[in-house]
Computed example of a mutant assay.
Amino acid sequence: MFTYETADQKEVRRFRIAQFNGRMATVKSGEETVTGFVRSVLEQESSIPQRWTITIIPTAPKDEIKPLRPGSRLRPFADDYY
């Protein structure tokens, strides 16, 4: 799990919407980028200004999709017709 802390209300709203709709969210913290499902958005009541702690369950990156069949064979010979 990845824990992220922010004070930006727009960002918190984006994470809450992603959590409610079951969509993945992406956050960039420093040089690290994490994509995954939002597990929780908790407000820290004792802090001023308001701060939220967001917990994300990261997902593994998908493998590249390989084409099922090779590309068209006509393209390499297209220059012969011009």
Rank of each mutant, 00 (worst) to 15 (best):
E45K: 10
P76G: 00
I56Y: 04
E43I: 08
E5W: 03
P49N: 08
M24A: 02
T55D: 12
S72V: 07
K10T: 06
N21K: 15
T59L: 10
G30I: 00
F77P: 04
K28A: 13
F77D: 06
S29M: 09
R69N: 12
F77K: 06
Q50N: 07
E32S: 06
I17Y: 02
Q9P: 15
K66G: 01
S29Y: 09
Y81T: 00
I65S: 05
Q9W: 14
K62V: 02
P70N: 11
T3V: 12
L68M: 07
R69F: 15
V41Q: 03
S29P: 01
T26R: 13
N21Q: 15
E43K: 12
R16P: 02
T59N: 06
Q44P: 00
F2G: 03
A18C: 14
L68P: 00
I17G: 02
R69V: 14
E32D: 10
T55L: 04
E45W: 03
F37H: 12
Y4A: 06
S72N: 11
K66S: 08
R39V: 13
V34Y: 07
F20G: 07
I65M: 05
T33I: 14
A25G: 04
D79W: 11
T55K: 13
T3M: 10
E31K: 13
E45F: 03
P49A: 10
R75D: 06
E32W: 02
F20L: 15
D8G: 04
K66T: 07
T59G: 03
E45G: 08
I54E: 08
S72M: 02
E64H: 11
V41P: 03
Y81V: 07
P67D: 09
K28N: 12
